[in-house]
Every structure is written in structure tokens, then in C-alpha cells.
């Protein structure tokens, strides 16, 4: 599979040596949805702005479609759809004028597809005739999303795409994203909504303080993550015999025990079998656990 985006030691320092991103090396393959996770200020937006050439790297470089993102920007952006974070498009234009304007700049026109997008996002002709400055946050977001899709780009770079959308519209967006990927499109999206990334992305990376912490297929990412275990006993227990390398006991409170499964589950079940267990839950690790794990590491460091 071809690499659509590649970064090599991409670094951006702002004024007073504030780190935007540092030594970032990642790759996004053709036909995948790549999630870029991080807390506020971790460097997600900086990375995206570097990719679309709004800001310039201090050192390192990014390649998109195999071309240098700075030198060949004009060539590259013919095939890119960009959705900035929480930005209102040109406020004095009507929704329709804005979509037409962006369309012309992309030199692409597929009226049927745009009509389908408008229908999916429940935007009427009346809505399109209103000025963008009169739109609600959600409506402005929908228009911005449509302009990202409407010229059928090969790559979409999206910064917090569902910010401001209601749950129904979020679902519509996810469906559209899946459809786009199935047709061979590639997506690089940043988010701090872990559920969103878990739901739509094939691979994800976590960025912390401007540095890449991990980059993996979502399933593998969760496989390596400690799962939470909650056990309820029929009577109060002494936790000492339950100590094991297979898990890390977090809290014991009378008849309940909370732990994090870090090793073989078989060893834990054998340990628990010595006690009268009333109930036990062992939910599958979610992206939230993965994320928190990496951010907890930072605290301990």
C-alpha cells in the first residue's frame, strides 16, 4: 500500500522555543482513516497546519503523495480536502456562494454528489441562501464538511471534524467517511474524541507534548493495553495472596477489588478461584484506556 503522508523528524518551534511538534515521524497509508489523538495543546493542530502548509517547519519535512509538502504545495493541494478546526468559512458569503467558490478553486464540479451531501446533512436551499455569519455553529460546520468532500479529493485532512455537530450529524459524518474510505480515499483526522477514533479509524497515533508516543492499528493498540478488572467477593478478603505479576491491584475495599490486567488472564483466574467470588467484570480495553495509559506514563515520568 502506498504511503500518502509521511513525515520525517517534523519539528515546529514557536516563539520563545515553545514546542509545537518535535521530531515527528509518521506515515499514513493509502485508503486508511488515520486518527491523530492528543490532549489540548499536544500538537495535533500544529501537525495539520504543517501538512497543509499554513505554517512552516523549523526542521524536518513532510511528504504528501510522495512530494515535499512545502515545495510542491500547489501541486499537492489539488487533491486535498482540508477541514480546519472550529473555523467559520467566509462569514459574508452565503452557504451556496462559499461552496461554489471552493468548488471553482478546486476546478471540480459534480452537482449530483454535492446535492447528495447537502441532503445527507439536511441543508435546504433556504439554508444555503443565508449568509454564513447567520449560521449556527453546527450549520457552519456542516457547510465546511461539505466543501471538504464535494470535489472528491484523494486525501482529506481534518482537524476535530465533528466539533459542533449533533450526534445524528456525527453519525452521518462517520457513514460518509466510511464510504469515502471504501472508494479508496485516505483520511488524516485529529480528534480528542476517543470514541470517534475507535469507531472510524483504522490506525491511530497518540501525540503528547509535541512528540509521537505510539502509532499502531487500533485493534493492536488496544490489545497491548491493560484492562480494568473489577471483582466483588462474597466476604471480606485479605488481598496479600492475590498479588501477582499478571495484574496490578489498584484498590481493595472490603469485598471489592479493582485492578489492571497487565499479564496472563489464566493466572488471575486461578488466583481468584481460591476466593468466594460473587461477581466479576472485565470489559474490553477501549481507546480511552490506551490514551489514559500513555498519559499516565507521562505523570509517572
Amino acid at each position: 500500500m502506498d504511503k500518502i503522508i509521511e513525515t520525517f523528524g517534523l519539528t515546529k518551534y514557536y516563539k520563545d522555543d515553545v514546542v509545537g511538534v518535535e521530531d515527528l515521524s509518521l506515515s499514513v497509508r493509502e485508503g486508511e482513516i488515520y486518527g491523530f489523538l492528543g490532549s489540548n495543546g499536544a500538537g495535533k493542530t500544529t501537525t495539520i497546519r504543517l501538512l497543509v502548509n499554513l505554517i512552516f517547519p523549523t526542521c524536518g519535512k513532510a511528504k504528501i503523495f510522495g512530494k515535499d509538502a512545502v515545495k510542491h504545495h500547489l501541486d499537492i493541494c489539488k487533491d486535498i480536502g482540508y477541514l480546519p478546526s472550529a473555523v467559520r468559512p467566509r462569514r459574508n458569503m452565503t452557504g451556496e456562494d462559499f461552496l461554489d467558490y471552493m468548488w471553482k478553486l478546486s476546478s471540480a464540479a459534480d452537482r449530483e454528489y454535492r446535492a447528495r451531501l447537502l441532503k445527507k446533512f439536511a441543508l435546504s436551499e433556504k439554508d444555503l441562501g443565508r449568509k454564513i455569519k447567520e449560521y449556527s455553529t453546527g450549520m457552519a460546520r456542516k457547510i465546511a464538511i461539505i466543501q471538504t468532500f464535494q470535489h472528491r479529493p484523494k486525501l482529506m485532512v481534518m482537524d476535530e471534524p465533528t466539533e459542533g455537530l449533533d450526534p445524528v450529524m456525527q453519525h452521518t459524518f462517520y457513514e460518509l467517511l466510511g464510504e469515502y474510505r471504501d472508494n479508496g480515499g485516505t483520511v488524516f483526522l485529529s480528534s480528542h474524541h476517543l470514541r470517534e477514533v475507535e469507531l472510524v479509524c483504522d490506525r491511530a497515533a497518540i501525540i503528547r507534548k509535541g512528540r509521537l508516543v505510539v502509532e499502531e492499528v487500533i485493534k493492536d493498540l488496544m490489545k497491548h493495553t491493560a484492562r480494568s478488572v473489577h471483582v466483588t467477593f462474597k466476604e471480606e478478603i485479605d488481598p496479600a495472596p492475590l498479588e501477582s505479576d499478571a495484574w496490578e491491584i489498584v484498590a481493595v475495599d472490603g469485598t471489592t477489588l479493582d485492578a489492571r490486567l497487565t499479564g496472563d488472564i489464566d493466572a488471575v483466574i486461578k488466583l481468584l478461584a481460591r476466593f468466594p467470588v460473587a461477581d466479576m467484570s472485565l470489559p474490553t480495553a477501549g481507546l480511552q484506556d490506551v490514551f489514559l495509559d500513555y498519559y499516565k506514563e507521562e505523570e509517572t515520568q
Binding site: R49, V52, N53, L54, L74, D75, C77, K78, I80, G81, Y82, P84, V87, R88, P89, R90, R91, N92, M102, L105, S106, S107, A144, Q147, V157
Partner: peptide
């Protein structure tokens, strides 16, 4: 309208 509002990001993402 473009730089401060951020709309220039849309324009600059085009060729």
C-alpha cells in the same frame, strides 16, 4: 475576513 477568521485556511488548501 481571511486571516483573522481563519477562512484563509480554506483558500490556501486550494491550488
Amino acid at each position: 475576513s481571511e486571516v483573522a477568521g481563519g477562512a484563509i485556511g480554506f483558500t490556501l488548501s486550494k491550488p
